[in-house]
Simulated assay, not measured.
Amino acid sequence: MQSPLVIGTRGSPLALAQTRQVRRALAVALEVPVEEEERLFPIEVIKTSGDRIQDRRLIEAGGKGLFTKEIEEALLEGRIGLAIHSMKDVPTENPDGLVLAGSPPREDPRDAFICYDAATLDDLPAGTRIGTASLRRQAQTLNRRPDLKIVNLRGNVGTRLDKIAAGEADATYLAVSGLKRLGRPELTENPMPVEVMLPAAAQGALALQVREDDARALEIAAHVADRQTTIAIAAERAFLAALDGSCRTPIAALAEIADGDLRLRGEALTPDGAQKWARDARAPLSGDFVAIARMLGETIGGEIREEAGDAIRYEL
């Protein structure tokens, strides 16, 4: 490691926390001295369209890509050499010239239930206000508890916690992974069981994105790429792509590897939660693991797409 590799990221507390964690992992893998870490891996904060929009749902402003577009532009222009995103924010298609160079080990993908008056979703009285801007979380909540009320709640983790404390909503959900990366494990004591709330595709995983012709950045990123995470994310993102997944579609997916098999659970719902289409499939892993993962995702995603049709799409 002779010359710096500039890392681009959003400026939210969570984005910075996870970027610093990846930087530390890269420094350890490459035996970079602690005192040289900031010089060799400088961080450039880039404000994205998603950060600027706070008064409405992202679906109303264009959906996927709002948290990555400006960072990807900086990558293509050569202002940064490595971009770090939350994988669930990354569209299923890369812009020309960019590739995903893998993911570090995934953090807990579940959602945490945040409420000061009840321990679980089922404990809430009818009419309780659930604050979320996620169409997936909205649909899954109403599928289980159609008697609850959904109110729009946006912002970073701290902002949403403040809004709950201020009474703008009675409960909300936050990703367990984000809370752990921010050093708030005490807020993860009530995780949502995946049987009740399957997480967003790629939740808990990070994306390392580079220019496809940058051999040096590709080689550096490979030092922290985790094989099992890469396989699982390939299946989940293929499922998402098969359903034409975007912020306009309530979709959830979780892939796990055990005993040589890849298990993929996926579901899509109507935005009001009244209908749900789900699949639970397995495939033995041998040969090209990533290709098998993608095929499994495409297969069950295609089955749900054919069965559900346009019913799962949210109309503005």
Rank of each mutant, 00 (worst) to 15 (best):
G11W: 14
P13V: 03
A15D: 15
Q18H: 15
R20I: 00
Q21K: 10
Q21W: 06
A25D: 15
L26Q: 10
E37F: 02
L40Y: 08
P42N: 09
E44K: 13
V45H: 04
R52P: 00
R56Q: 13
A61M: 04
A61D: 04
G62L: 09
K64N: 14
T68Q: 11
L75W: 06
R79C: 12
L82H: 10
N94G: 00
L100M: 15
L100Y: 15
A101W: 13
P104K: 15
R106D: 00
D108E: 14
F113P: 05
C115P: 07
A119M: 02
A126E: 15
I130C: 05
G131H: 05
G131Q: 03
A133I: 00
L135N: 04
A139N: 07
Q140W: 08
L142F: 06
D147E: 13
N156G: 13
G158I: 12
R160W: 10
K163H: 07
G167F: 08
A171M: 05
A175Y: 04
E186Q: 14
L187C: 05
P193Q: 03
E195Y: 01
A205C: 04
E212F: 01
R216A: 14
L218M: 14
E219Q: 06
E219W: 01
V224H: 11
A225I: 02
D226T: 13
D226K: 14
I231H: 13
A238S: 15
A242H: 07
L243A: 02
L243I: 09
P250M: 04
A253K: 12
E256F: 00
I257Q: 09
G260Q: 10
L264Q: 12
A268I: 08
P271H: 03
D272M: 01
Q275W: 03
W277A: 01
W277S: 01
A278Q: 15
G287R: 08
G287D: 08
G287A: 05
D288W: 08
A293V: 04
E306Y: 01
D310L: 04
E315W: 11
